[in-house]
C-alpha cells in the first residue's frame, strides 16, 4: 500500500520523479502515513477523553444541581422523613430507608438463588442443557424494566395481595416487618421481588463465569480424595470464587439501587416510613423518577438532585468495591490458570 513502487506510476509528477524513484515513493508514503497515524491516534484519544469528560460532567452536574438544596436543607435532609414539595418539606430519610430495605430484601432473595443457578449452569447441568438454559436466564436481564414494572403492577401485585401477603402476615405477622398489607399489593415487598428478577440473571451469569474459571485440577483432586459433588462445590469451587461472587453481588446491588422505573411502578409512591414490608414507600431512584414526571419547582428540582447525589455516592462506592475485587480476582485467576 505505502511501499516504494512509486517509480512505476506516472501520476507522481515531475518533481517527485526528479528526486529518484525510491525517495519519491517513500516521501509520499511517509507523509500520508504519519498524518494518518497522528489523526487516528488523536481521534481515539479524543473519544476516550470524551468518555472521561462525560463521567466527570455527570458527577459535577449532580453535585452542582444539589448545591442549592444542600445550602438550604443542609445535612438534616438525610434524617428528615417528610417529602411534601407543595409545603416545602423535603427529607430523604423515607427514601434512604426504602432503598436500604428494598435492596436488603432483594439481595437476601436474589444472591442465594443466583449462586445456586450459577452452580447449576457451571457444574450440575450437562453441556447441552447449559447452552440452552444459560442464555434463557440471561434473557431475564434483557426484559425492559418498564415492561417488568407493568407486569408487576397488573399481574404480580394483585397475586401477592391476594395470596402471598396474607400468608406471610398470618405466619410471620408477629414481626412488624410483616405487618398488615395495602389493598393494592403495591409496596416495598413487591418492588423487592421485581428487582430480584432483574438482579438474579446478572449475579448468576457472573458467578457462573467465575465458577467455570476454578481450575479443573483442584476439583479432580477433591474427587480423587472421595469428595461428593457438593463437597467439591463447598470445599473447592465456592472458596476459590468467593470474593468474585461478592463482587458480582455488589454489581447486582448497584443495579437494584439504580433502577427507577420498575420500582416507581410497583412501590406505591409512599411518602412516609412504614414498618411493614407490605406498605408503600419509595427508593431514591423511584422518587427521582416520580418527581421528574411532573414539573418540579426550583427547590424541589435541587432536592431531587440532592437525592441523586446520595444515590450516586452509593453507586460509586459499590462499583469501586466490585471493580477492586474483580481486578484482584482477574489477576488471581490468571495466575491460577497458568
Amino acid at each position: 500500500m505505502s511501499g516504494g513502487s512509486g517509480s512505476l506510476s506516472p501520476a507522481l509528477g515531475p518533481a517527485a520523479a526528479a528526486r529518484g524513484p525510491w525517495s519519491a515513493g517513500r516521501a509520499r508514503g511517509t507523509k500520508t502515513d504519519r498524518f494518518g497515524d497522528a489523526l487516528l491516534k488523536s481521534l481515539c484519544a479524543a473519544a476516550s477523553l470524551l468518555a472521561v469528560v462525560i463521567l466527570g460532567a455527570i458527577f459535577y452536574q449532580v453535585l452542582d444541581g444539589a448545591s442549592a438544596a444542600f445550602s438550604q436543607l443542609g445535612i438534616g435532609f438525610l434524617v428528615h422523613e417528610v417529602w411534601q414539595p407543595n409545603f416545602g418539606h423535603f427529607g430523604a430519610a423515607t427514601f434512604i430507608y426504602g432503598t436500604v430495605v428494598v435492596s436488603l430484601v432483594t439481595m437476601v432473595i436474589a444472591v442465594p438463588l443466583a449462586i445456586s443457578i450459577g452452580l447449576y449452569l457451571s457444574t450440575t447441568a450437562s453441556g447441552r442443557v447449559r447452552s440452552v438454559v444459560g442464555p434463557l436466564v440471561e434473557m431475564l436481564a434483557a426484559i425492559p424494566s418498564v415492561i417488568l414494572g407493568f407486569w408487576g403492577l397488573i399481574v404480580l401485585a394483585p397475586f401477592l395481595q391476594a395470596h402471598a401477603e396474607p400468608f406471610l402476615h398470618s405466619t410471620l405477622g408477629f414481626l412488624p416487618l410483616f405487618g398488615k398489607g395495602e389493598t393494592t399489593g403495591l409496596g416495598l415487598f413487591t418492588a423487592s421481588l421485581i428487582l430480584t428478577i432483574m438482579v438474579v440473571p446478572i449475579v448468576a451469569a457472573i458467578s457462573r463465569d467465575l465458577f467455570l474459571t476454578v481450575p479443573k485440577d483442584l476439583q479432580d483432586g477433591a474427587i480423587a480424595l472421595g469428595a461428593t459433588r457438593w463437597e467439591v462445590v463447598r470445599g473447592v469451587i465456592l472458596p476459590s470464587a468467593a470474593s468474585g461472587v461478592v463482587a458480582a453481588a455488589f454489581l447486582g446491588l448497584g443495579r437494584a439501587l439504580g433502577e427507577a422505573i420498575a420500582t416507581l411502578q410497583v412501590i406505591g409512591g409512599g411518602n412516609f416510613i412504614h414498618a411493614s414490608l407490605f406498605g408503600t414507600g419509595g427508593t431514591l431512584a423511584s422518587r427521582i423518577a416520580e418527581d421528574a414526571l411532573g414539573t418540579p419547582y426550583a427547590l424541589q428540582l435541587s432536592a431531587v438532585f440532592y437525592l441523586g447525589a446520595i444515590l450516586l455516592a452509593m453507586e460509586l462506592v459499590l462499583n469501586l468495591a466490585a471493580q477492586a475485587i474483580m481486578r484482584r480476582f482477574d489477576a488471581f485467576s490468571a495466575v491460577a490458570a497458568r
Binding site: 463521567l55 455527570i58 449532580v62 439504580g258 433502577e259 427507577a260 421528574a292 450516586l312 462499583n319
Partner: peptide, 8 residues
Amino acid sequence: LNGVPTIL
C-alpha cells in the same frame, strides 16, 4: 460510567 444509574 456503565454503573451510573440511567435516571441520573
